[in-house]
């Protein structure tokens, strides 16, 4: 006879666990749409995609296991912030790949695959209309597709794909925004199998969007049809869309204020402090990425890149990174400043 134990998290409300998550995170407007709950839900009841997280019929269908609460980065939320620990920082540009900035995310992933550190990696590609689409990278050749590299300013269901990947593979790489990175760390702390995620690449991030809201905004207010766009970017406080014919539309990100999801407005983690390596554009000149190397595995990869000379390497401007980290704390205070009645906190 075999027996084993598992922990049940403490409930805050006398409801099933999803009811707790809904009350404390989703309805409390803290949800960052990382989709970790959707990935871990044993009955696959929690839905993500291009709409707020929900569990239709949870009162009946939730099996009350508490896994969603265990992996949620916004449950008992304590914002992370700052530049975080790092062992090395460089500004670099891949000589092989084309990406958003210096394509260093892609270069690091390719090198990790070539070194045999990971068997596959979860990337975010897109369709013609810039809807996010998950792709599993098994071979470096897949990374030359320009749809696979580059930033999509919309939520992506990478973590559900990551969960499937760890079931079939022993070493997986992951790329995500800071909230997704935190979610992966929580998953690793709660469930051993997620130790198979060997490399977590974080992206610098201030906010993300729902695809339908972003595309509707662009069409209505800027007469921009994403179908014709070749690149979207946020640089120096401007949202920039480039088109096939070389033209571009640019406007201050501030104008997007009304469609910034509430969960992003309480997030202070710009640099993905819990990642193995964080990559962003701030701190580097155009065409280069800033790479913050935080852990041993990332260090080994960057050393390999340097040894092979597959990237051009420069000095970054850490002042700019620090400034953005501070700025994010300022614009996203937690608990939020203008709040309604504070909820009574009774368990």
């Amino acid at each position: 006879m075999q027996e084993w134990q598992f922990v049940m998290p403490e409930k805050k409300h006398k409801k099933k666990f999803f009811g707790n998550l809904k009350a404390e995170v989703i309805d409390a407007k803290l949800c960052c749409h990382c989709a970790a709950c959707s990935a871990i839900c044993p009955v696959y009841g929690i839905t993500a995609g291009d709409k707020p997280i929900e569990f239709p019929n949870w009162v009946k269908d939730c099996v009350d296991c508490g896994a969603c609460v265990k992996v949620c980065p916004r449950w008992e939320y304590k914002p992370l912030n700052g530049v975080g620990n790092y062992v090395e920082v460089i500004s670099a540009k891949s000589k092989r790949f084309k990406g958003q900035d210096g394509a260093m995310v892609t270069e690091i992933t390719a090198t990790a695959l070539e070194m045999g550190l990971i068997e596959k990696a979860i990337f975010v590609s897109r369709d013609e209309d810039w809807r996010t689409k998950i792709v599993t990278i098994r071979d470096v050749s897949q990374l030359y597709d320009r749809k696979v590299t580059g930033t999509k300013y919309c939520y992506a269901d990478s973590i559900p794909a990551l969960k499937e990947a760890i079931l079939s593979s022993k070493a997986v790489g992951f790329v995500g925004t800071p909230c997704m990175v935190s979610a992966v760390r929580k998953m690793q702390n709660s469930f051993k199998k997620f130790e198979r995620v060997k490399l977590v690449i974080g992206l610098f991030c201030t906010e993300n969007f729902y695809h339908h809201q972003l595309s509707e905004f662009l069409l209505k207010h800027k007469n921009v049809d994403l179908m014709k766009a070749t690149k979207t970017d946020i640089k120096k406080g401007k949202f920039i869309v480039r088109f096939v014919d070389g033209s571009r539309v640019s406007f201050p990100v501030k104008e997007l204020e009304e469609i910034i999801p509430s969960g992003c407005k309480v997030c202070q983690d710009f640099s993905a402090v819990e990642s193995d390596v964080s990559v962003g554009s701030v701190g580097s000149e155009s065409g280069f990425s800033t790479v913050l190397v935080r852990t041993e595995i990332a260090k080994a990869i960057v050393d390999k890149i340097r040894e092979r000379g597959t990237a051009e390497i420069k000095e970054p401007d850490m002042g700019a990174v620090q400034k953005l980290c501070d700025y994010k704390i300022k614009i996203h205070p937690y608990p939020p400043k203008k709040k309604e009645e504070k909820k009574e906190e009774k368990s």
Binding site: Q2, F6, C65
Partner: peptide, 28 residues
């Protein structure tokens, strides 16, 4: 046999599906 108890979600789907009620749970 559970090969990796440290990864158990605690969802008890194994219990639910068992036709012989062979898997049991106790609070602790």
């Amino acid at each position: 046999f559970c090969e990796e108890p440290e990864s158990c979600l605690g969802c008890r789907q194994c219990m639910e599906v068992c036709p012989h009620d062979a898997i049991v749970m106790e609070r602790c």
